[in-house]
Design a protein around this nucleic acid. Structure first.
Length: 203
DNA sequence: TCCGAGATTGGCT
DNA sequence: GCCAATCTCGGAT
């Protein structure tokens, strides 16, 4: 069952943590992609200079001002894109970066999108490498900014998040975020991942 | 096989 | 010039 508005319009940190274990579903050309969210990071509205919207909303980040459930995609390092789910009520700024996904359905499509060749006798390492990073699963799903920037996971008919049973507390690891050494907020414990899951980008 | 350094790349500020 | 990243290749294990 699709997560509704009430899931996304809560506090950013709660949304980021509870997204673990949920299923990101994409339907394109009658092809279904499904994957379990295994790693997230929260970017929050106060005292977080690692957040793109820290100094206020710009044209790049305009969707962050929308109500929770919208999709914020940004370009990074010229060649990659990262996928965030906006949280909080309209006008409050916060979002969760999805950093890792475990493929569940449509693995053959993900494999083709990543390696530009059909899936045939894949190595275990190749499967892990499909979706164990924030730009990797975006490439695997074939998501791009032009197509999905600002889309709404609550109402869109191409992409949504499906509910799943709440994870037990001991399966959730809470730690520091990745590659934000430049930020004063680098030591905030705003990264969450599922313990022992191989599709987590970094332990 | 694993790990670190270096190259890659272009929009944003 | 900087950056919510990734790939490749070399040398070490």
């Amino acid at each position: 069952m699709r997560l509704d508005r009430d899931f996304f319009t809560r506090n950013t940190i709660i949304v980021a943590r509870e997204l673990l274990g949920k299923i990101l579903v994409l339907k394109r050309d009658e092809k279904i992609y499904k994957g379990k969210i295994v790693e997230t990071e929260a970017y929050i509205k106060t005292k977080d200079d690692a957040a793109h919207f820290h100094k206020g909303i710009t044209d790049r980040t305009r969707v962050v001002a929308e109500e929770g459930g919208h999709i914020y995609i940004y370009n990074i390092y010229g060649m990659y894109q990262c996928f965030n789910i906006i949280a909080e009520k309209k006008g409050v700024h916060g979002g969760a970066l999805i950093r890792g996904i475990e493929p569940i359905e449509g693995i053959e499509y993900m494999y083709e999108n990543r390696y530009k060749k059909p899936l045939n006798q894949p190595k275990k390492r190749e499967i892990i490498n499909l979706t164990n990073g924030p730009a990797k699963f975006v490439m695997a799903y074939g998501i791009n900014k032009d197509e999905f920037y600002g889309a709404d996971l609550v109402t869109d008919d191409r992409i949504w998040v499906e509910d799943s049973p709440k994870l037990p507390r001991e399966k959730i690891i809470k730690t520091t975020r990745i590659n934000i050494d430049y930020a004063k907020s680098k030591d905030y414990l705003l990264r969450f991942y599922i313990k022992d899951n191989p599709f987590v980008s970094k332990k």
